[in-house]
Design a protein around this nucleic acid. Structure first.
Lengths: 208, 208, 208, 208
DNA sequence: AATGAATGAGGGTTCATTCAT
DNA sequence: CATGAATGAACCCTCATTCAT
């Protein structure tokens, strides 16, 4: 059923490639200075394209920003772990460690992306802000559900899942910020850092 | 020893009052949109003053922003608790609860301020960004020192104080964000929320 | 006929003194930066008076500038020499030397004033510009008349008096500029410089 | 070897043309009002371009002013005559007459330019002021060297070359000012005016 | 008479967006 | 499709002038 590659295909591929190139440039530019601090000029310089070309791929500044967030959120979502408690599944704690390590690795490997995700609280693009907001809400909900499940199974203490989830999400963000600003020290020791952080989350800092 | 109020006094008072009025307007404007998104025009509109008047009180946009951060940091610093472990002092856990509750109360009561403090990671004003950065560093250091002390006293588990401090600071920020976006539900229950959060930090979510 | 000094007198004296003080400050400020480059702020700083006080003495920025020019022009006019050719008068050349030396001394002694007089070609104050223009016209006319008289007496060559006057006025301005920018070297040797310049004007640079 | 005009060529030509158009507009605007009195608004109005367009061609107000001065100085420099005293060269006096006539013609033909050159002694743009200053210094130096050479050859009287050069430069400026403000009368008689002025410079006004 | 806080028009500059080539 | 010159609204800031005290 193979059909010869059409011009259209090649065009589509080239187009997608170009789009990615612009998105990457935009990521770096948004990373320093945030939404308002970024300028189309800086983006096209980095992407080495003409001013007009930018607008062939994105409707506006808001649009690139939105697309950037969407891409990052999609990538991250794919890495978020849903702990399985079925018989035969690995022990929950192991799953958690693996899952969080994967998220941390992804985000720490892409500092500009992390900067965008952590620093984009203030966007004039109401829609993008809402999307980011709802992304975090989503993560929080995942955590809250896991907490509730663990509670039901008698593994976890009884807490207010919503608030505890907020606290734990903040905890992860705190670690991400730390990893990003101490990249050198953390390099290659994400596993260890993850274990520490999961330990704090699970057992707290108090000595038993 | 009462002396009649002098013109100078009244002037100084009026000046300070005016300054506060501008700072408050600026706080709201910076809160939505961040540094770059804020405009002097928006600030003076909110403060109901003329363009030039603004510059009688602040040298520049950077200057208001800096002053805003400074005020907030001073207020917050005054509320940050240094846990005392002297004999006769209240139990550390109580001190901690009180201290954190005081911080939360202050910041949750002032949503715009919280927005500025939480969202100004990326500011073009290098100096202000540095100041905010070092403010967080300072808090992190306070936490790290407390952790180390607790460790030495055998109260706390052995962890990497720096990283754990980063995690705990993030945890607090997570709660602050939650409180701000769920202000209604949290209203008047800061104490309870604080207890939960301290519980998570001290004992983790795992059931013993 | 002496009468006791009245308050009004003292006031009038004080007022005049104050006015002079402002004019002096303005002179320095206008000297660097010209009319547009000068600011009321700079003037009142230099005069150590309040903003409003300035407007008690001068209607506007244009007004100080005009008053400044007027004062300078009056002073200069008083020094401009009209060569006398009556019998019994000193030889014309001596009169010329003395007169020009007096003008040079006055103006070189007051660099800021010279800067204002030489550099104020562009003023938005049409009236002031016209006044300065007509001041130079006046001087040119004095020179032209002297040339014509000298011609008639057979002392001077036959030239177009108007144009030659323009050239000689320029020549003097050239020397003034030189003296001002080489103040140190010229210090106390104005007489010598004057002689040179008069020599050039009278005899040219060509060797006989 | 003719090749079809490329887009690039046309672009470059169009760009240069546009630049010239802005420079000309700027010349007129700077001519009245000087550096400070000129506004970008006035320049773009005169050039009939949009605000932003201006900044595509010049970095700043300072930059246009500098470019304007540079262009004028280059043009003028090309017209400044260096009197040759080699055997076979035309008599020095003839060379001088020709050279000065060329300079006068150029500058009298462009009143706004003359206004800028004569009136920009006090510019806040330190660099532009310095450039203009050093331009005049350069001319003065040329004159001074010529005077020294003439002295050495026994053609000219012994004078202080520096000061005499300053006087002669002023003399020329005086004539330029005269020509500009009496354009009608001088029209087409630059040669005659030049002869007069050279006569005054060489022989003075005194009858032999 | 003297003050200085307040005003707002206007200055220089940037930048998201459009459109003819 | 790609380009980059052109646009003009909007930004931050200055400064001559006014006026209540």
């Amino acid at each position: 059923m193979a059909r010869p590659p059409l011009d259209e295909d090649r065009n589509a591929v080239a187009r997608a490639e170009r789009r990615r190139q612009i998105l990457d440039a935009a990521k770096h530019v948004f990373a320093e200075g945030g939404y308002h601090g970024a300028s189309i000029g800086a983006i096209i310089d980095r992407a080495a394209i003409a001013r007009g070309t930018f607008y062939l791929y994105f409707e506006s500044k808001e649009a690139v920003f939105g697309a950037l967030l969407d891409r990052a959120m999609t990538d991250l979502r794919a890495r978020i772990v849903h702990v399985e408690t079925d018989a035969g599944a690995p022990p929950p704690e192991v799953q958690l460690l693996d899952g969080i390590a994967r998220v941390l690795e992804y985000i720490v490997a892409d500092r500009p992306l992390a900067a965008v995700l952590l620093g984009s609280t203030s966007t004039p693009d109401a829609e993008a802000a809402a999307r980011l907001q709802s992304f975090y809400d989503e993560i929080r909900a995942v955590i809250a559900r896991s907490l509730a499940k663990g509670e039901a199974l008698g593994i976890l203490r009884v807490t207010n899942p919503e608030r505890t989830a907020a606290a734990l999400l903040g905890l992860v963000r705190g670690i991400v910020e730390y990893c990003i600003s101490h990249a050198a020290e953390v390099e290659g020791r994400i596993g260890e850092v993850t274990r520490e952080l999961v330990d704090v989350a699970l057992r707290g800092v108090l000595r038993r």
